[in-house]
Every structure is written in structure tokens, then in C-alpha cells.
Computed example of a mutant assay.
Amino acid sequence: MPGLITRISYQGLAGPPDRKARSFTFRIKITTTDPARGSHLLVSAIQQPYAAFTTFATPAPPLDIRQGRGIVTALRITVGTCTGIPRGVSLPVLEVTLSNRRTEERVSFGLGATYAEDLEDVLTELCPLSVPRSPQAP
């Protein structure tokens, strides 16, 4: 099971969000803990599981992760619509498709509290919540 030997860690935002493009970029590090000598892991897809988001990775998959060496990749997320974006999610995830010599699987990885806080801050900046207006007095 490739998901059991894979670690993905949040490395932080890669700069401020781009309000005009309604996008932001963050970095992750992908490593494998497979003890087999010469083993490697193939990452064939990385996505946010939200329909409002488009994900672009640099370097782009497929990524060949060798045991003992991690790869840092930047994920640029573009928000297509502010309707239906995740707000206040305590454990947002990435959907990652992994394979090794034995099998392929799609796995959800939680990136932790710092990512959740950064995601909430960025989404608040890119898609401010509308403030309901008080009814006007007659």
C-alpha cells in the first residue's frame, strides 16, 4: 500500500495570494519510507478535492520519489468560484494518486493545522464573506 509508506508535509505558502488571478501557491514535501533497497514511489496526480479549485503542480507529475530523497513541489491553486469553497475546515486534505511496484491507490493526506489556518486566511482574502446588511428602518 503506497499510502502507508508516503509522507507529505506542508512547507508553507510560497508568497502572498494573487487576488487578480484568484490563486495562491504553497509547497509540500513528498517522501517515502519504504525500507526496500532501491525502492521508489510514483506520484501520478495531486489535487485538491474541491470542485471550485484547479491544482497545478511544479514540477508536474509524474514524480519519481526515491527512498531517502524527498521532492518539494509547489502547488498553485486557482479558485474558479467562491461558491462552495471549504470554510473553517479543520483538516483540509490533498488527494494524491500513488503507485509502487505492487499497486496504485488514491489517498487523502491531511496537511495539518498550519495548512488549515493558511488556507482559511488565503480563502478569506480571495473570497471575502459577504456581510449581511441590516434591514433598513422604514
Rank of each mutant, 00 (worst) to 15 (best):
M1D: 13
L4N: 11
L4P: 00
I5C: 10
T6K: 11
S9F: 04
Y10K: 01
Q11N: 06
L13A: 03
R19W: 03
F26V: 02
R27P: 04
I28P: 00
K29L: 14
T31D: 15
D34Y: 05
A36T: 15
A36H: 11
A36I: 15
S39Q: 08
S39C: 06
S44D: 11
A45E: 12
A45W: 01
I46R: 11
Q47E: 15
P49S: 10
Y50M: 07
A51W: 00
A51G: 01
F53T: 05
F56T: 15
A57Q: 10
P59D: 04
A60M: 02
D64E: 12
I65E: 08
I65W: 04
G68F: 08
R69I: 02
I77P: 03
C82H: 01
P86L: 08
P86K: 08
S90W: 02
L91A: 13
V93I: 14
L94D: 06
L94E: 10
E95W: 08
T97A: 14
L98H: 08
L98D: 05
S99P: 10
S99W: 13
S99H: 13
S99M: 13
N100H: 09
R102V: 08
T103L: 14
V107H: 09
S108K: 12
S108Y: 10
F109R: 00
F109G: 01
L111A: 03
G112H: 03
A113I: 07
T114M: 08
E117T: 12
E117G: 05
D121S: 14
S130W: 07
P132R: 09
P132E: 07
S134G: 06
P135M: 01
P135R: 05
